[in-house]
Design a protein around this nucleic acid. Structure first.
Lengths: 202, 202
DNA sequence: GTCTATATCCCGATAGAC
DNA sequence: GTCTATCGGGATATAGAC
């Protein structure tokens, strides 16, 4: 694995010119704002371009397609989150931190859910992206849980593999409920699972 | 609660004429087929209408909009599933049965996920629908879990409320992973959660 | 009640000029 | 690196035929 940035976000990734990177960042920021405020259907390229002060083609110059643009937002935020959680001893604590953080950024969660749902669609750029993403996430969490099992800090009557999948599923799934009903305390729900995993079986 | 069918699927729900109900069913069936085979983006009103032998407006006569059409599919399948799970003693077993069944209908799961993701979008008809749906589902499962707790068949150090949310989250979330990576055994993952809920804490 | 024709509008994407 | 022009596709409202 290299530190090379993946080519998710368009053809200008190589040798970025100062003006270009600023525009790029501005477009990403604006697109997220529009999506958060108006939703998927209203967040058209035209609307976003207008707010940035460009035409649709201007936006498409930086991101190959509308789908690529939204995927680039997810990709960027993912890099931040992954970097922050890197090298944590307790993966369960890291997950709870993430969930708590997510409760403060509903728009981003909405976008994330929309991309996840679109990923299985044949030909959608999010497909390969999420396959890789889920793979890495699962590997990291599974390894962390296995470590805790070896230390006796997690129950070992269930495989680390399955528990890792369950953790990811719980986080993703509770977000679906939370988006429809914001009164739900996501941390409380995920914390219940963490409790069950860390309390030994009889 | 009456047995009256909700008005989810169009204005012709009252006093259905034989020809109309047949067409309606045919459209629902075809729409699901196209969605399962081609995905959300290719499943346009035109494509569906063509296969049924109608024009787009012909389809729109039965369902007010494309979104309403897809929501009607979910609604119909939900009625079947709910009726089947009705009056089950063990809600956990019912959930596992549903998950096992879902592994045989990936197209429907894809549609379900797509609708769930679209639900938080402002103005989307799936919004109110899923709010109600999640409410009913949660109430039913929560009550069932509480019953099991009273019988000593489920751990009671965590609230039935939270466990119910966690169960629904796990089912929804594991589907997201499964759609991107069909090798995952959804039953195994959800069963792990069931095991933890039914095994008493130390 | 069932359905078509038409007309309009918005969208994403491409080609090519500057 | 950005715009103009344009294309094809898709959603939807109305009028009216059967």
């Amino acid at each position: 694995m290299t530190t090379e940035r993946p080519a998710v976000g368009g053809r200008t990734a190589r040798r970025p010119y100062p003006k270009g990177v600023a525009r790029r960042a501005q477009i990403l920021q604006t697109a997220l704002e529009v999506f958060a405020a108006e939703g998927d259907r209203k967040a058209s390229l035209r609307e976003i371009a207008e707010r940035v002060g460009l035409t649709t083609t201007g936006v498409l110059h930086y991101f190959g397609s509308r789908e690529d643009l939204f995927l680039a937002i997810i990709d960027e935020r993912d890099h931040e989150a992954t970097a922050e959680a890197e090298g944590t001893e307790d993966p369960l604590a890291a997950i709870l931190r993430t969930v708590r953080h997510n409760m403060g950024v509903p728009g981003l969660v909405r976008l994330y859910v929309a991309m996840t749902a679109a990923a299985p669609d044949p030909g959608h750029p999010a497909g390969p992206y999420f396959a890789r993403r889920y793979g890495q996430l699962h590997e990291a969490i599974s390894a962390g849980v296995a470590f805790m099992q070896a230390d006796g800090r997690a129950r070992d009557d269930l495989s680390a593999d399955t528990l890792a999948r369950l953790l990811v599923a719980a986080v993703d799934g509770v977000q679906l409920q939370w988006l429809v009903n914001p009164d739900i305390d996501m941390v409380e729900v995920v914390d219940a699972l963490v409790t069950m995993i860390t309390s030994p079986p009889q």
